[in-house]
Nucleic acid binder design. Structure first.
Length: 588
RNA sequence: GGUCCCGUGGUGCAGUUUGGAGUGCACGCCGGCCUGUCAAGCCGGAGGUCGCGGGUUCAAAUCCCGUCGGGACCGCCA
């Protein structure tokens, strides 16, 4: 149908008879001579039409086939902004393959006329005609290819696992699907292929991967969709360093796609250090600014607010010059996060302390404070006081906010780190009260994560101190992947379930198939899963994963294009067996 | 479940604080003119339930209440 791709035409095609296809990106009709920018997937080339009767009816986004001759553009008429700007195609014939209705929004986007995301996604097939939008999907394709190349070269097997599976009590709410043939019974869509990939290890595949669609019925964010994709990987006969090394080989290959060479090895930080120094399990290491523990410093303080389980501080460089309004803004910012406020002390140019908190401190406390937290004259010191975890989290969020407001973050930087040695369990309750009873613990990673070898004997008697054989990879403050060495011994798995308050009978009912499989010589194994949408969004340089998803959903879980979800007919309801009344004893 | 922002011809905005005729800007659309443009240009024109419902008022895009939709955040998301 065509002889060339529009964007490929160059000066050395001059004189060539060509047939081109594409869409009318823009037309400039001078009445007698008209110029059509003809766009296809490869780019744009200018077509010249001298027959006004042919050119006049053409409109934006008409789909055309053109036969003509490639010509050097007349002297002085080159367009250096186009790859094809040295040439043009003199049309001998113009065939309208398909007319276009008036567009709901301009395809050719100018900076002056952006289009809101909802409109773009409702007509995503038009949005994707835009080179910028399409580039994100093309990049994603390249990212998939790069990951496959690394994994296939290392002997991994790509396996598809079911998307109609069994509801298991993991972290998130399941999407469920009625089973027509067994009314009252339901499939669940997988939150991840976790259990299946472990079974594949029992099956002896040794090295598995899958670009896997996962489903979680939770509320959405800019970086969260109800269905999302993981690069899911599992390996047998490995230790943590083996999986981390593989993960590094993958991210190196991915970031090469955008011209960045990641220095190896990627640094590691323990979960405890990440929380202590950055107040986050996914610290943004593109900038400094660390939290300072002031708990001991204020151990004997008379200031009521600082008589707390944890007192911490974070310094805002130059923050003392903030206006009253800006300082009040921080209070609102903290309250929006559920904190009472954000105490602060300002260090003036002479090193004198100011602000409402300063007068509540003793002379001794004031004298050493700036030195203790590392504040210089002109800085502001923000304090958090309260339960350890929530206080560190608040200070960590404040640190990120300081990074933004003080413009400390280099947008072109890539800062990777592994966060290792996360706790195996965390208390179910919000408080830091350690005296919670058994069953009040939940897995930080997931229920199949092995305790570190040194915790194997003690993790169930002292769950709070047990460390997980787990690792997360963090890029610029985003968790882009995480994994663990799994439990492969049936008795260890049972003890973990016990700590979580999952009794033998219930464990048997929910995970019986896995425990059964582990009876037959399960190999030690571990793996990792990358949040593929986030990885692609980072590489594409976009803040929202929607840009790297072909047909994304809105925050309400709606597909603005198809209108899903939508009501079904009474007939469909009946056939699906949705309204079947469960047996009284079927559990809930 | 909670907080905040947005909703005005097809698109993107301004107008809302301080109520006074659907007022304005840019793009697009339709018609005309135009033989070297490249965001072509010039002239003319069409196009509106100011998201929806209720209230206050002589009068509501504007103020109040509710609701729907979109976005961001907290909770939640192993």
């Amino acid at each position: 149908m065509r002889t060339h791709r529009n964007g490929d035409l160059r000066a050395d095609h001059v004189g060539r008879e060509v047939a081109l296809c594409g869409w009318v990106a823009r037309r400039r009709d001078h009445g007698g001579v008209a110029f059509i920018d003809l766009r296809d997937a490869s780019g744009v080339v200018q077509v010249v039409i001298h027959d006004e009767a042919v050119a006049h009816p053409l409109r934006s986004e008409f789909c055309l086939r053109i036969e003509g001759t490639v010509r050097r553009r007349p002297e002085g008429n080159d367009n250096p902004n186009l790859a094809t700007g040295q040439v043009e195609v003199e049309a001998a014939s113009v065939e309208v393959l398909s007319e276009s209705a008036v567009l709901p929004f301009p395809i050719e986007e100018h900076e002056a006329t952006p289009v809101t995301d909802e409109v773009r996604y409702r007509h995503r097939y038009l949005d994707l005609r835009r080179p910028g939008s399409a580039a994100a999907l093309r990049l994603r394709s390249d990212v998939n290819q790069a990951a496959r190349s690394v994994l296939l070269a290392e002997g991994f097997v790509e396996v598809e696992t079911p998307t109609l599976t069994r509801s298991t009590p993991e972290g998130a709410r399941d999407f469920v699907v009625p089973a027509r043939l067994q009314p009252g019974s339901w499939y669940a869509l997988p939150q991840s292929p976790q259990l299946f990939k472990q079974l594949l290890m029992v099956a002896g595949l040794e090295r598995y991967f899958q670009i896997a669609r996962c489903y979680r019925d939770e509320d959405f964010r800019a970086d969260r969709q109800p269905e999302f994709t993981q690069l899911d990987i599992e390996m047998s006969f490995v230790v943590e360093d083996d999986v981390i090394a593989l993960g590094e080989r993958i991210v190196v290959a991915l970031w090469r796609l955008v011209g960045h060479e990641i220095a190896l090895p990627i640094p590691r930080i323990t979960y405890a250090d990440a929380m202590r120094r950055y107040g986050s399990d996914k610290p943004d290491l593109r900038f400094g600014v660390e939290l300072v523990d002031c708990t001991d410093y204020f151990a004997h303080t008379t200031f009521r607010v600082f008589q707390a389980a944890h007192v911490g501080a974070v310094v805002m460089p130059g923050g003392a010059s903030q206006t009253r309004k800006q300082l009040d803004g921080w209070q609102d910012w903290a309250k929006a996060r559920g904190a009472k406020g954000l105490a602060y002390v300002l260090v003036d140019g002479d090193g004198e302390l100011g602000g409402p908190v300063a007068k509540n401190l003793t002379d001794a406390e004031r004298d050493g404070l700036a030195a203790h937290v590392g504040a210089a004259p002109g800085d502001a010191i923000f304090f958090g006081a309260g339960p350890v975890r929530s206080t560190l989290a608040l200070l960590g969020a404040a640190r990120n906010e300081i990074g933004r407001r003080c413009d400390l973050i280099d947008d072109d930087a890539w800062a990777f780190t592994w966060v290792v040695d996360a706790p195996l369990f965390e208390p179910t309750s919000e408080t830091d009260d350690v005296a919670v009873g058994a069953g009040a613990w939940t897995a930080v990673h997931h229920a199949f994560t092995s305790p570190k070898p040194e915790c194997l004997d003690t993790f169930d008697t002292d769950p709070g101190s047990a460390l997980a054989y787990a690792y997360d990879i963090v890029c610029n403050g985003n968790e882009i992947g995480g994994g663990s060495i799994r439990i492969h011994q049936r008795d260890v798995q049972a003890r973990v379930f016990e700590v979580m308050g999952l009794g033998e009978a219930e464990a048997e009912e929910k995970f019986g198939f896995l425990l059964e499989a582990f009876r037959y010589g399960a190999p030690p194994h571990g793996g990792i899963a990358f949040g593929w949408d986030r990885v692609c969004a980072l590489l594409a340089g976009t803040p929202s994963i929607r840009e790297v998803i072909a047909f994304p959903k809105t925050g309400g879980g709606m597909d603005p294009l198809t209108g899903a979800p939508a009501p079904i007919t009474a007939g469909q309801r009946k056939e699906a067996g949705i309204d079947a009344v469960p047996e009284a004893d079927s559990g809930a």
